[in-house]
Design a protein around this nucleic acid. Structure first.
Length: 873
RNA sequence: GGGUUCGUAGCUCAGGUGGUUAGAGCGCUACGUUGACAUCGUAGAGGUCAGAGGUUCAAGUCCUCUCGAACCCACCA
């Protein structure tokens, strides 16, 4: 029965329907595979459940899905575990903005409980939307196991870790998590503490104020912090201030006089300003360190809303920015201002989530000691990374990871936001208890919630029902963890330390980083610039497979990728090409008449394509195992388009061994579909249906042994003979084009094939039919000189095309002369190499032999061309 | 100040452990509606692999330096 396929592949018709089939078949659920099979786990980084997927998410997903499908085809029990992240601060910011815009409300209008519930519902709604996006991308995840960071079991496991750490006490009585007052990054807009990782530094052009400060003149960008000064610091080697160190001075200020001490500290840069700096211990990290070293008092003047506190007199209640203006005006009046530099570049810290300027303030927070005596998180993490118990791809990120590990400070894990799990600490009459449930009446729970990374950092095992769940026992640790390189410090590092502590095991064996996706000119994609590529929009326009290819091919691991719509369009064409190749195969083969293929029944082209397929399978397997997806895709593409479509399919139209052709076309096509499937699952599945009733997604990875058995071991012969025929055909086409032989015009040709003449004779039909336009082909071993013709020397074979009347032999002479020169110069470089004794003695024999072979070929070619030129007169 | 990446054809990029005359896609030129495909086919032009040294029989690939671009961390008082 002949099947009909439309000539253009329309993804929209097939994709949803195919995904549905996969989903219903249970192919993504590991429970359908026997426990005896090797396990494979990839936990999918949970996207923040407050928006939608962008192209960056997609670039990670396609890698995870590729590896998942590949391992599934290898017969493994594969689990791709999906989930969503509640994303503490970010979601709270998003939702606050939303209620402000839509209802003109603040979170206080709703109250903590109602706010929490609304955000929860919002996240559940977004999760549903995002899950559909994930399916659109073809992600073969087990949705029955999907997790949310706020699922009760996930939370309780994460909280238990906190309690365990609290109870981890060393000999000196230090706990692994502790509460203490420290100067921390404070976002006045979010009204919460932030970790170092949640702070970004932004360049700003501002003013540098030079103020008169008792006996000093010193430069500052923040004159308002003068109200909290307790010292002036200078460098110990600074001759200018040597005599003043250790002394106290009374300084005139806008709120009256105050006392400061002069201290010497090597942190001070003598080159900056006047070499003397004012020290505000409560509102600067560096000043705080100086204060600690010199035992200086600290005076807090800025509160949690970013305003000046009551102790700031008439400035109380002003924001820091307002206070700065006011103080500068007053200082000017009082003659305390020396001068102002108007054009001063410096950088300011801003909240990563809302962009508001960070105020460093002292605050009571919960911290994780990352270098605890009982179990040093950083040292243990270093060990597993250093020893490559966790392998990192690409390798250079190992160094980056080690740097992060070495520089990490105690981790502030409490946040003063509402959205997230509460910290399980209870207070009463100055007592503290850390436990899940309330210790009893009148105990008050800590108002703070956990840093979102404290829960997502435990994702590697909380998702598997640690510690008793079957999934944990079966699958943990993950085989692959794949994420964008931008969240290395935020997430991968946290997962490593928390997993090491809680499970005493690495969370994953391989850690693979993708680069960031930029626009086609390397600019960061952003909504405001309008240069973003929306995955759904592209899928709608070009199909999922095209989007997947554009993310997988033409980029390298860990490096950023530039992506424009044109690239996606190109892969749309590519997908269509595959469709049409299969259309040819489907309509020209019979699935019910497959025969056993024996070497003796095969033509040159048959052996050639079988050999090539064998190599393709080996190469693709090797490349995927080495995470070289771009290379795998590239070799698949060139096989499919060039070897299979341009040559083998064309040849198959003109060779008579129909049963063999029928079988080889089917066999190679099916294996090609299998090899392609992890890259472009939809179109391959759609085509597969025409060959097989089962699902391609549940079929197996091709084996090259099958091809080895047919073609035998002599790979070079299998390929070379047909390659020679190819070269002859290309040379003839080339000559036709060069001499503008009209497309329809038939020509004759004579070939002197020497030792290849039998082979060429057997392929005469192919040479004639593959767009060479040859009418009469005369093949001989050798013969008398032919002069009035175009002469082509191909792989030691002489091809003559008599074109008297069409060809200008003066021009032909010039063409050959040029070719001769090329050959001669090439021959010369080889000769120099071979004359070099060091080369012949040091290089491997096969390399030298290859060079010798090349030299021989060139010499022959040169001789033949010379002779022919001579014959032209 | 510490670190990373990149610089290969007009554009966007590939080129594991050094080894054919350096590749692809798009674009370009000239032909072409051949019975899977014009989302196509045939042929072609286009590169001193940023520059300079070095290691080696052999360097786009390894080392050093220079120039240019991007990014991360720290500092920015």
């Amino acid at each position: 029965m002949k099947k009909e396929l439309p000539k253009v592949y329309e993804p929209k018709i097939y994709e949803d329907q195919i995904y549905d089939k996969w989903d219903k078949s249970g192919v993504f659920q590991p429970d359908n595979i026997s426990d005896e099979n090797e396990k494979y786990l990839n936990i999918i980084p949970p996207p923040n459940a407050n928006g939608e997927l962008h192209i960056g998410h997609a670039s990670g997903y396609v890698v995870m899905d590729l590896l998942g499908r590949y391992n599934r085809m290898l017969g493994k029990k594969v689990l791709l575990l999906p989930g969503k992240d509640h994303a503490g601060i970010q979601t709270q910011v998003v939702y606050e903005k939303k209620i402000k815009e839509e209802r003109d409300l603040t979170k206080y209008d709703l109250g903590r409980e109602k706010f929490y519930k609304e955000v929860y519902d919002f996240c559940i709604d977004r999760s549903q939307y995002m899950r559909n996006q994930e399916k659109k991308l073809g992600l073969g995840a087990d949705w029955s196991r999907e997790k949310f960071t706020l699922d009760p079991k996930v939370i309780s496991t994460a909280i238990e870790t906190f309690i365990q750490m609290y109870n981890e006490i060393d000999d000196d009585g230090n706990r692994m998590v502790y509460r203490g007052e420290r100067i921390i990054n404070w976002c006045p807009r979010c009204e919460s503490a932030l970790s170092d990782f949640e702070v970004e530094h932004k360049k700003e052009n501002g003013k540098l104020y030079w103020i008169k400060y008792g006996p000093f003149v010193l430069a500052t960008t923040r004159p308002e912090t003068k109200l909290g000064d307790t010292a002036v610091a200078v460098h110990p080697d600074d001759e200018r201030y040597k005599d003043m160190v250790g002394k106290n001075y009374t300084i005139k200020g806008v709120l009256g006089n105050f006392e400061i001490k002069v201290v010497a500290d090597k942190e001070v840069d003598m080159e900056f300003g006047s070499g003397a700096i004012k020290v505000t211990p409560a509102h600067s990290f560096v000043d705080n360190e100086i204060a600690t070293r010199h035992n200086l008092p600290s005076k807090k003047i800025i509160d949690e809303s970013g305003r000046m506190m009551k102790n700031c007199g008439k400035y109380a209640g002003m924001t820091t920015a307002k206070a700065r203006e006011a103080i500068v005006v007053d200082m000017e009046k009082m003659g305390l201002l020396d001068h102002i530099d108007d054009d001063y570049d410096h950088s300011i810290a801003v909240c990563e989530r809302c962009g508001y300027t960070i105020e460093p303030i002292p605050s009571e927070q919960w911290f994780v000691n990352v270098d605890h005596k009982n179990f040093s998180l950083k040292k243990e993490a270093r060990k597993v990374v250093e020893s490559e118990k966790i392998k990192i791809y690409p390798a250079r990120f190992k160094k980056v990871m080690l740097q992060w590990i070495d520089n990490v400070h105690d981790w502030c894990i409490s946040r003063q936001i509402w959205w997230g799990p509460r910290i399980p600490a209870w207070y009463k009459d100055g007592l503290t208890k850390v436990q899940i449930d309330s210790p009893g009446d009148s105990w008050k729970q800590d108002e703070d919630t956990f840093d979102t990374w404290f829960s997502s950092g435990q994702w590697a095992y909380t998702t598997l029902d640690y510690p008793d769940g079957k999934d944990f026992k079966d699958f943990f640790p993950s085989d692959n963890m794949i994420m964008g390189r931008d969240i290395l410090p935020l997430w991968s590092f946290r997962m490593i330390i928390l997993s090491l502590y809680r499970t005493r095991s690495i969370p994953f064996k391989n850690l693979y980083f993708t680069g960031l996706v930029r626009d086609e000119h390397g600019k960061k994609m952003s909504k405001s610039k309008g240069n973003g590529i929306e995955p759904l929009e592209m899928i709608e326009k070009y199909g999922t497979d095209a989007v997947r290819m554009s993310l997988l091919v033409g980029s390298s691991p860990g490096n950023d990728m530039n992506l424009g719509e044109a690239k996606i369009e190109g892969y749309r064409n590519f997908v269509n090409k595959l469709w049409n190749i299969s259309k040819f195969v489907v309509t020209n083969t019979k699935q019910d008449n497959l025969v056993e293929i024996k070497r003796k029944d095969c033509t040159l082209a048959d052996l050639w394509i079988l050999q090539k397929t064998k190599e393709l399978i080996d190469e693709t397997t090797k490349n995927i195992n080495g995470y070289r997806f771009s290379q795998a895709g590239e070799s698949l593409r060139s096989f499919m388009w060039e070897d299979f479509a341009d040559w083998y399919v064309e040849v198959s139209k003109f060779e008579d061994n129909k049963e063999i052709k029928n079988t080889i076309l089917t066999m190679v096509m099916k294996d090609l579909l299998r090899l392609w499937h992890p890259f472009i699952p939809f179109v391959t599945e759609a085509i597969w249906k025409n060959f097989d009733d089962s699902l391609l997604a549940s079929s197996s990875w091709p084996k090259s042994e099958r091809y080895m058995k047919i073609v035998g071991g002599d790979r070079e012969t299998n390929k070379l003979d047909f390659e020679t025929i190819k070269s002859i055909i290309i040379a003839i086409r080339n000559a036709r084009a060069e001499y503008r032989v009209a497309p329809g015009k038939k020509i004759d040709a004579t070939i002197y094939g020497s030792k290849n003449s039998d082979t060429i004779t057997s392929q005469a039909n192919i040479i004639k039919n593959l767009r060479t336009g040859i009418e009469k082909l005369d093949v001989q071993e050798k013969g008398q000189k032919i002069t009035k013709a175009i002469y082509l020397s191909v792989d030691g074979v002489d091809v003559y095309i008599p074109l008297e009347g069409i060809v200008d032999f003066e021009k032909e002479k010039k063409r050959l002369q040029k070719e001769l020169e090329k050959s001669e110069s090439f021959a010369k470089t080889i000769a120099t190499k071979l004359q070099n004794e060091k080369f012949t003695s040091s290089a491997p024999k096969e390399i030298v032999d290859k060079e010798k072979e090349k030299a021989k070929q060139q010499e022959e070619k040169i001789e033949k061309i010379q002779k022919f030129i001579k014959s032209l007169g």
